[in-house]
Design a protein around this nucleic acid. Structure first.
Length: 230
DNA sequence: TAGGATAGCAAACGTCATTG
DNA sequence: CAATGACGTTTGCTATCCTA
């Protein structure tokens, strides 16, 4: 993914009301959209360097969007949850994901077979759900950062697909320069951990890939290991 | 009646499918 | 082809219900 013009820089003053962030740009304070309603552990600290994009869409109330943060520890982390799907979409179409490189015809937002809701991507006999990881805790990347009934439901739906003979993939998009190993935050949501464990034993595949991000281009870096907690 | 629990909604935006 | 609707994203506020 390439940004042209390049993303612009500011200093995060505060993130509030779920979708809003105040950013100091030069002498001015810009209120922008923050498409991330999550906890944003470690990546919403006051004083962090942040980068944002600007939209030309006249219907938008806030023309700027927060894109990524440099944490106080110096790591670059994407905070725009919409980017995760875009990054994965690009990677799928350009066949950078070797596990599914034999598929070309990816559809977005495909209905979950047999129930309400959607998976992020589908192709032939493959269902793929994307989750973005942005939390580096004690040197290890973890997901989720909050209890999430919906995330658990998605995993269980993937398991149902696997049991019916489809390929079902839980895909962790990791746009965080400091994460090179991923696990599940069992303490945050024990039922999610159980759901992933059971899904994997039913044949659901779990993949995790890291992206490098910068003001101008975001590139797929490498696959990173995923392991269930002990 | 005060308090807790819970369900529903709204916040800003993107994307896809359907409708006119 | 443009407009509209549904859905996804999470949290916290508010209205409503139940219990001590």
């Amino acid at each position: 993914m390439r940004f042209d013009p390049a993303l612009r820089e500011g200093i995060l003053l505060r993130r509030y009301k779920r979708f809003l962030a105040d950013v100091k740009v030069g002498k001015h304070v810009l209120t922008m959209h923050c498409a991330n309603t999550g906890a944003m552990h470690g990546c919403a600290e006051e004083g962090s360097r942040v980068w944002y994009s600007t939209s030309k869409n006249p219907n938008r109330k806030l023309s700027s969007s927060l894109e990524f943060v440099q944490t106080l520890q110096g790591y670059e982390v994407c905070v725009n949850t919409a980017r995760a799907n875009q990054l994965v979409h690009e990677a799928l179409l350009s066949k950078q994901i070797r596990q599914v490189a034999n598929h070309s015809d990816w559809s977005r937002e495909v209905s979950i077979p047999g129930e309400r809701g959607r998976f992020d991507f589908g192709s032939d006999n493959v269902m793929l759900e994307v989750k973005m990881v942005s939390w580096l805790r004690k040197g290890i990347g973890v997901f989720p950062d909050a209890e999430s009934v919906r995330a658990t439901r998605h995993v269980q739906a993937l398991e149902q697909c696997a049991k019916r003979g489809l390929r079902a993939i839980l895909f962790f998009c990791v746009p965080h320069s400091g994460i090179d190993y991923l696990t599940i935050a069992k303490d945050i949501d024990p039922s999610y951990e159980v759901a992933v464990r059971e899904a994997m034993s039913s044949g659901v595949e779990v993949l995790a890939f890291r992206w490098n991000i910068s003001p101008r281009d975001w590139k797929l870096d490498s696959e990173i290991p995923f392991q269930l907690p002990n």
